[in-house]
Design a protein around this nucleic acid. Structure first.
Lengths: 124, 124
DNA sequence: ACAAGTAGGTTTCTAATGGTAACTATGTTT
DNA sequence: AAACATAGTTACCATTAGAAACCTACTTGT
């Protein structure tokens, strides 16, 4: 006997997906890390590169312009010599912080879990 | 006078980045949506496609194998006719739910904010 | 004076990822 | 017999990411 398909869990036609919408704001390689690094205040290009070692200039540059375009952060050129550029979160950017905190919190759990498994595996 | 670089905000050598680690678990197109769709219980391939209309068979298939490999979900073939395949979250998968809830919560804020801006722009 | 360094990128090239559409195998329903 | 359902796979193309080199303007060290 063929299976019946269970009904849809999230009615699609009426409203766009809130999960997808928020994910699109933080989409792109290293975007969450950039936002996380800016949570404590403004930060310059080269400082961000130090905060996030694996990111290349090209990708960091691309991500910063995208995030600026999305209204997540502001770019501010300061008349130093040589000129420096500071990035800082907008109010919208600040709203993303709780979600990133929740993700970091899961990171802690994963770490604890790995430690536990490593011990369990070593004991076998 | 040249600027001094402010000190690094997250000491890198000692520990790997918790944010990046958790992000890698939910990485890949539509992965968060798949996990979200499974949060209320097991779901079949074609049901997931209905839950997440924009995903293609190819990408859904790729995502499901990756998530299984990462230990986020289990694949279970049932001897129906034709055979059907159910996917369900593991304990590790369940641990990701709070983070996704936080993201959905931001989705709500973004929606509210959009409505507000739309009104403000219309009034100009 | 001249080489090297700093800041904030851009350019080029290659590899991996994602999207579209067509196609498959087995078995059931009409 | 033709059509449909399930759970994918395959081929092809467009976009994205990563590595490494390069660039302009200004400053510092020898």
């Amino acid at each position: 006997m063929p299976l019946k398909m269970r009904k849809n869990r999230s009615p699609k036609p009426p409203e766009p997906c809130l999960l997808t919408e928020c994910m699109q704001v933080i989409a792109g390689a290293w975007a969450p890390n950039v936002i996380w690094s800016l949570r404590a205040g403004p930060r310059r290009f080269s400082e961000l590169k130090v905060d996030i070692p694996p990111v290349s200039s090209k990708v960091l540059s691309a991500r910063l312009s995208e995030l600026e375009e999305r209204g997540v952060l502001l770019r501010h050129v300061r008349p130093t010599s040589p000129p420096s550029v500071e990035y800082e979160l907008t109010d919208l950017g600040e709203e993303l912080i709780p979600a990133l905190e929740a993700i970091v919190e899961v990171g802690h759990k994963l770490k604890a879990r790995r430690g536990y498994h490593a011990v369990a595996e070593a004991a076998e």
